[in-house]
Structure formats: C-alpha cells, structure tokens
C-alpha cells in the first residue's frame, strides 16, 4: 500500500473544490501538491492561507510529481481536463456532472482506461449516513422489492457560469438530476431505459432551465421521478435538499438526507436558518478516492456511474424538447 498520495487540484470554478480541499488537507496520507486555475484571484485565498503552489496552467501541474488530480472546473471543461490528466498518467476525481455529451463522457472513460488510470465521479451523496443505512435496509429486503422511487434535489439558483450554457452545458436539470439519479442507479442496480421530462425557466430571470420534473423507467421495471429544480428562494432556511422515497412491495422508506439540522431564528438575519450537524459527506468521498488509490483497488464510484447518471439529464432535455419519452441505448450491453 502506498503511504502517501500526491494530489493536485485543477480549477475551483465549482464551489465544492473548497470542501474537497479541506478534506484533503485534513489527511496525513495526502500531500497536496498545488492548485491549478487560470483565475489566480479565485484560488489565492487557498494557496496563500495553506502555502500551496499555484499553477496558472493545468499542464504544468500535470507535469509535476502528482498521483491524482481533483477536477472542479466548469462542466464543459471536465472532458478536456480529464483526458489531459489521463494522458499524463494521473488518476482523476471529477466533479459532477461527468460531462455534457455522451460521446464526451465515453471519451473520458476510454482515455482513463487506455492510460491505466482510474476515473471517479464525485457523487458524495453515496456517503451520506442516511443513504448508506437506506441502502442496507433495501439490500436486507426490509421493504421488499422496490417498485417506485420519488426523489428531489431541489436547490438554490447558483448563478455565475452555471447559468451560462457555453460553460455549464445545461441548467438545473443537468446540475441536479445527476446526484439522486446516481443513488437510484446504485439502489436499483439497474439503469434508466426511458426518460420523460419537462424543463422550463420558471423561478429566475436566467437564460437557462431552472425547473423541471424528470420521469424515469428503469430496465428492471421500476418507475421513478425526480425534481431537480433550483426552486429554493432566498428566504428559504437552507440551500436545498436531497430526498428519496422508495416504495417497495412490503413497505416504503424515506430518506431526507439533510434533516439532521438545528433551526435558528436570528433577529439580524430575519429569516429562519438551518444548521446541518450531520456527518460530512465530502470527507467520506475523499476518503474513498484516496484509500482506493493507496490500496490499488477500483474506485467505488466510477466514470461509468457518472455517465449512467448524466445521460439521464441529457435525455431529459431531449424529451422536454420533443414532448415525448426518449429511450436510452443499452451502452453497457455493447461494452459487454
């Protein structure tokens, strides 16, 4: 087993980078080599505070002595950066959604395979304690066989590059379908076969979708729906939610992943706020990535997982455009 893993970070465009950085810095088995970001000001607070090397060019970081990189760029850059990292022989932890087209994601997966490096998709929701317990309950058969799932990943409109299609590739439906979709794929051990969706701009003055409902039919016959809308107003006490209701032949199960919170009523804020006190999911995600690489095991959430989930969001857009259900090709079967 490797004693230490040398990790670099590429781009802090996505705010999750700051949380992953904290998780990496907290580990004795990780050497943080530095941060690459074309926007120096964006990362200066981190490089200065923690005395980290700064790279203007990701290529320079990839040329350094690094085992793995964490990519938190804008969505459209996930593919070129991942391919570049793979060719440099670096393992990759890539922020979700994995990519913005199916072909691009296939290219990322293939580049990592060809260069003998691992690709992990950052789906931290798999590491929520309630989700882990729910999965165990389902696997034990506590609610029988699952027949339906209703999920929500409602959030706050993030603004910035997220609402610029040339950088994000899509709005709320892409941003917030993938997390819970991955959980559904994982719980069901099946894949989406058909997708029907509505996508719209209803909540904010933005040039991209901020609302939708995505219906999914899985290959194993399970039906599901998901609300990925950026529908939490500024007045809402928290950023959003991750919920999943599973209907089984013997009962049902409800996960409200961020229900572990205290309620705060403060005169200066003049709105209630929720303080989450549950376990950090990002710590566990980073732990899973680092330990898999140190021990030479397969990463637990793969590029294929990222592909399976993001393609549902892409199919949702196609369906919303067509006004009809869209069937997904059985890519896995081709690969087998």
């Amino acid at each position: 087993m490797k004693d230490k893993l040398k990790v670099g970070m590429i781009s802090f465009a996505h705010m999750h980078a700051a949380s992953y950085l904290q998780a990496l810095l907290a580990r004795k088995d990780v050497d943080l080599v530095g941060i690459a970001d074309e926007n120096r000001e964006r990362v200066r607070p981190f490089t200065e505070r923690y005395g980290l090397a700064y790279y203007e060019d990701a290529g320079k970081l990839l040329a350094a002595d690094v085992d793995a990189v964490v990519i938190c760029s804008e969505n459209v850059r996930h593919a070129p950066l991942t391919v570049q990292a793979a060719r440099a022989g670096k393992h990759v932890l890539c922020e979700k959604p994995l990519g913005i087209t199916e072909a691009q994601m296939q290219e990322m997966i293939e580049a990592c395979r060809a260069n003998g490096v691992q690709l992990m998709t950052a789906f931290p929701c798999r590491y929520l304690a309630s989700v882990i317990e729910a999965k165990a309950a389902v696997d034990r058969g506590d609610i029988g066989r699952i027949v339906a799932i209703k999920g929500t990943n409602r959030g706050t409109m993030p603004g910035g590059w997220f609402v610029d299609r040339s950088l994000s590739g899509g709005g709320a439906v892409l941003d917030h379908t993938v997390h819970v979709m991955d959980l559904m794929n994982w719980f069901l051990n099946s894949e989406a076969e058909e997708v029907f969706a509505f996508a719209a701009t209803l909540f904010h003055s933005v040039p991209i979708d901020d609302a939708g409902i995505v219906h999914v039919k899985f290959r194993n016959g399970v039906i599901a729906s998901l609300d990925p809308s950026w529908s939490r107003p500024a007045a809402f006490p928290t950023w959003g939610d991750v919920t999943m209701e599973l209907i089984g032949t013997k009962g049902s199960l409800f996960v409200d992943a961020f229900a572990q919170k205290n309620e705060i009523y403060n005169n200066e804020r003049m709105k209630p706020s929720w303080s989450y006190w549950g376990d950090s999911m990002d710590d566990r995600l980073i732990d899973a990535f680092v330990m898999a690489l140190r021990e030479g095991r397969d990463v637990p959430v793969t590029g294929e997982d990222g592909f399976r989930s993001a393609r549902v969001a892409l199919a949702a857009y196609a369906s919303a455009e067509l006004g009809k259900p869209v069937r997904l090709a059985d890519v896995e079967a081709d690969r087998r």
Partner: peptide
C-alpha cells in the same frame, strides 16, 4: 406518479 403541465407554465 403523475406530472401535469399547466397552460400557465407551472408543473
């Protein structure tokens, strides 16, 4: 699970 799209745009 039923989704209704309304003429005013609501879902």
């Amino acid at each position: 699970l039923v989704t209704i799209r309304f003429r005013n745009g609501a879902i």
